[in-house]
Design a protein around this nucleic acid. Structure first.
Lengths: 115, 115
DNA sequence: TCTATAGTTAAGCAAATGCTTAACCAATCA
DNA sequence: TGATTGGTTAAGCATTTGCTTAACTATAGA
């Protein structure tokens, strides 16, 4: 079991590459084989394999080999970790703005009381 | 103007480091100076500066210098790009599951009609 | 059985990353 | 004015990343 921070490291790192995101985009429409995932890229097979390994290590995809073809699929649950973190940051920020607004309103009210 | 993919590269790459995420977490509670952001880390000042540069280049933060202190703040809008991409992937996946379910239901209905 | 297909491993390399130390500038403050 | 504080730049270095080619294994089909 990986701690939360290490999991986010792997997830965001995996998402930081356009080829890997393209693979995820393809996989979000349904499972695909390795060579099918490789097709859109002008990249050697080993390079594709390495990208897939990064995705799988991050838990963003799973795969199983049957015969000589390996079928990959997305693991949408893994997107949660990333989404939750982003949502939490936004929430904190909104909260802070709310407090700021409340404070400014309070100041204004005091001011009107004194004027 | 950066294209969408390059923006996502920078954003996810910036989020992939625990120190940078910690800085963003701090900033999501309100603005802070460089040295304030540096305090929690056992890391040289230049290292901190570099992390901040990565965040700012990705558009995740902004900063202004007044006197000799530079004040940084989060730019929550930049989180949108990342969140939107994740949401789109999830949506595509859900859609696919829906279609799959519809198809299976259809199969089952046909089967009952023939049985 | 021969051969093409699908994937895998190993080794190597250039560029990017994350850090360091050393040297420095500029705004405060005693 | 001289020292301290806050930040910045430059140079260097170890590690990681993203890719390559070459060599190899295993399954499927003619």
């Amino acid at each position: 079991m990986l701690n939360q921070s290490a999991a986010l490291d792997l997830t965001f790192q995996a998402l930081a590459d356009p080829a890997r995101r393209a693979m995820l985009e393809r996989l979000s429409t349904g499972p695909a084989s390795v060579s099918e995932l490789a097709r859109p890229f002008s990249m050697s097979m080993p390079a594709v394999l390495q990208h897939l390994a990064v995705l799988e290590t991050a838990g963003l995809t799973r795969s199983r080999k049957s015969g000589r073809v390996r079928t990959c699929e997305i693991n949408p649950q893994a997107l949660n970790t990333a989404q939750d973190w982003l949502a939490a940051r936004r929430a904190e920020w909104e909260q802070r703005l709310d407090r700021l607004e409340a404070y400014l309103t309070e100041l204004q009210n005091k001011d009107q009381g004194n004027g």
